[in-house]
């Protein structure tokens, strides 16, 4: 499969301040890539480098097979800035039309269709839009020309839950159409239901790239089993992947890493009357990346 975004040793220093260091990443055609990291991690820096708003200190990047410097390629990209600013007396609809004209036009009725889906009022002057409505205008301009590559910096910030759902539906549709999406976020929960892969960046460095499906398989799961009679704790201790076993009378609580197979087989020796298994909590894994990193640094420092 061809790479839609490709970076090699991409590095950006703002003076002496590190924005991003040595990023080597490949985003494939047709995938949704979640780009995660805490505040100041370097997400916006990466995205601005890809759009040639800022220039790398070293390293290189290509988008859709072209150098980021090539302005023509930007007609095929939809971009939502992380710090979207819309100002002035111009009405949102006129501004969208201007952007559409410069990008070579959009299909008839496309703007209205998106506005309806996101419940955005385009007759308002841009300076008077609320934060969420600005974000909607930003999303409309990013999606309206049906670009092959969508680069969205914190797309859901400021949106109410219903609009967030609609936005996720739009992302899925774009993927179905074979388009590629790179979206950043602070929390996994925002992207885990649409993303195929996630990259985790921290303090300017990419610390992991994970497949969501694989992540889910490895995820920590909380499981609760209820039996018809009290069970001995020993039968559940030392099982592979089973941790934090707590037995209280006829009920058992534990967490499992990865597959539940060993636990199920052990439980099968008793009569199970009820079983509760929570959704895998990916956020926990996500957070362990930070603590692991922290641990390693502490170790190196010692």
């Amino acid at each position: 499969m061809t790479a839609v975004v490709e970076t090699e040793g991409l590095t950006k220093f703002y003076g002496t301040r590190r924005g991003l260091e040595d990023l080597t990443l490949e985003i494939r055609q047709g995938e949704v890539f979640g780009y995660l990291g805490p505040n100041g991690a370097g997400k916006t820096t990466t995205i601005r480098l890809l759009l040639d708003v800022i220039r790398p200190t070293s390293g290189r990047a290509t988008v859709l097979g072209a150098d980021t410097r090539d302005p023509r390629v930007r007609a095929r990209i939809g971009y939502l800035p992380g710090e979207l600013a819309l100002e002035g007396r111009e009405r949102a609809r006129d501004y969208l039309q201007f952007l559409a004209d410069v990008r070579g036009g959009v299909s008839r009725g496309r703007i209205d269709e998106l506005a309806e889906r996101l419940d955005a009022d385009l007759s308002i002057r841009m300076g008077e839009l609320s934060k969420g409505n600005k974000q909607k205008v930003g999303l409309i301009q990013a999606f309206m020309h049906e670009p092959e590559l969508l680069i969205l910096d914190e797309p859901t910030s400021g949106l109410d839950p219903l609009v967030q759902q609609e936005f996720l539906a739009m992302v899925r549709e774009a993927r179905t159409a074979g388009h590629t999406i790179l979206m950043s976020s602070h929390v996994l929960a925002e992207v885990e239901h649409v993303a195929d892969r996630v990259g985790i960046v921290r303090a300017g460095r990419l610390v992991a790239v994970e497949d969501i499906a694989a992540l889910r398989e490895r995820a920590v799961r909380h499981v609760e089993l209820h039996f018809d009679a009290p069970v001995p704790k020993e039968s559940f201790e030392g099982l592979p992947g089973v941790r934090d076993v707590v037995v209280r009378g006829a009920s058992l609580r534990c967490t499992i890493d990865g597959r539940p197979d060993a636990l199920i087989k052990a439980a099968a020796r008793y009569t199970v009357v009820h079983m509760v298994s929570a959704e895998p909590d990916l956020e926990e894994i996500f957070l362990t990346y930070y603590s692991e990193e922290e641990g390693r640094h502490a170790h190196a420092g010692a």
């Binding site: 759009l51 708003v53 302005p71 930007r74 971009y79 800035p81 710090e83 600013a85 990008r103 070579g104």
Partner: peptide, 15 residues
């Protein structure tokens, strides 16, 4: 300064 230039720059127009 108003941060509205960023989006304009990402249009398919060279600087």
């Amino acid at each position: 300064e108003a941060k509205t230039l960023e989006l304009t720059l990402t249009l398919p127009i060279d600087r």
